[in-house]
Amino acid sequence: MTDREIRTVVSGMSYTECPRWHDGRLWFADFYIHAIYSVNEDGTGLRVEVEVPGQPSGFGWLPDGRLVFVSMKDRKVMRREDDGAVVLHADVADHVGGHANDMVVDGQGRCWLGDFGFDLMSGADIETTGVLRIDPDGTTTPVAQDLWFPNGSVVSPDGRTLIVDETFGNRISAFTIEADGSLSERRDWAVFGELPTSRAVAEAIPQVVLAPDGCGLDSEGCLWVADAVGGRVCRVAEGGPILETVEPGTGVFACMLGGTDGRTLFMSCAPDFNEIARSAAREAEIRAVTVDVPHAGLP
């Protein structure tokens, strides 16, 4: 574990997720306050960017600057127009097995979206699911399958590789993005352990060595990954070596590099991911630490 100074940027939230650095500000979703926020690097100037009654998750920007974002429980991707109007970008209800979840938007305006695959909060058994590609016109195409809770995702700086965390799968997967927008066969980017032998969540979690959740790339090709069950963020090299670990002192469910020099690692922290507990409290924070290697890729 690296001994780095950790500071609090934002507090008093319910459950923050999907941090992104954009236009000189940190943006993030709050699941149970039902809004996407932005804030200055030092924590001042917090503002609501868009309210999302259906519960926000992953988001990004089209090449023309319009915001696109997930409405989890509606199983939709929405778009904010230049005049502030919020409109439907894509209805994915026919393609997902649970809440729509994290999403990365690439340089061509294609959204790469994962979903829960099952009813996590009700205690259902794990069901594998896939990744959807949503083209700029809203056309939706399944492009991957058999993933164990596809979660935080990034696109490499050259736009040719999609990297997807599988939270219950003990692994991070990678796909080549082909010229036609299809994905190559899944390959291991990092493996931390075997696939769980049980699909019951309570039995699978103890078998997870590292549960990769939200993540972000750095300019050396390493991935900072939030460990959803381990209370840590890890800098992982391709192949699986863990090069550095930061422990913020609580649960941590997403992370992203940003700041004016790209070296601030923002961490979405909360005591746990239980929907009932987090909805009833305002204990979530975004904490930050300065690291050595700056951000790269998308988001």
Rank of each mutant, 00 (worst) to 15 (best):
G181P: 10
N170S: 08
M256D: 10
V293P: 11
V86F: 09
D30F: 02
S57D: 09
H22N: 10
M1D: 14
A204V: 06
F192C: 01
V246S: 02
R263V: 06
A190Y: 11
G65D: 12
V143M: 07
V233K: 01
S219E: 14
T139K: 13
R235N: 02
V201Q: 15
D292I: 11
T290D: 04
R20Q: 13
T161C: 11
L62K: 01
T140H: 13
G114W: 01
E51G: 11
D272W: 11
P294L: 03
G65P: 00
M121Y: 14
I205L: 13
N101P: 04
Y32C: 08
L265H: 02
T16M: 07
R186T: 14
R171K: 10
V105C: 04
R47V: 15
R66G: 09
D227Y: 13
M121C: 14
R199A: 12
S198T: 06
G97H: 14
V208H: 13
G181D: 07
E275D: 15
D42F: 08
D82S: 15
R75F: 12
P241F: 05
E203H: 08
H95I: 13
F149D: 03
A254E: 02
L243N: 02
A35R: 08
P299A: 14
E81T: 10
F59R: 09
F118A: 05
D64Q: 00
G262E: 01
L88A: 10
E194R: 14
G216N: 12
L113H: 07
G123Y: 03
G12W: 01
G107Q: 10
Q108C: 12
S198N: 07
T250Y: 09
A226R: 02
P248F: 11
L132G: 07
G169R: 06
V233C: 05
G221C: 04
I163W: 01
I126E: 05
C269F: 03
S14D: 13
P196H: 11
E194Y: 11
D82I: 13
D91E: 01
V77G: 00
G45S: 00
A270K: 01
D83N: 13
G259V: 00
V209I: 12
F28D: 07
R160N: 08
L162C: 07
V9G: 03
Q207C: 11
F28R: 02
G43W: 03
V68L: 06
I286Q: 00
E41C: 08
E238W: 07
L210A: 13
L243W: 00
E185G: 15
S153V: 13
A237P: 03
V289C: 02
A204E: 01
A226Q: 06
G60A: 09
K76I: 09
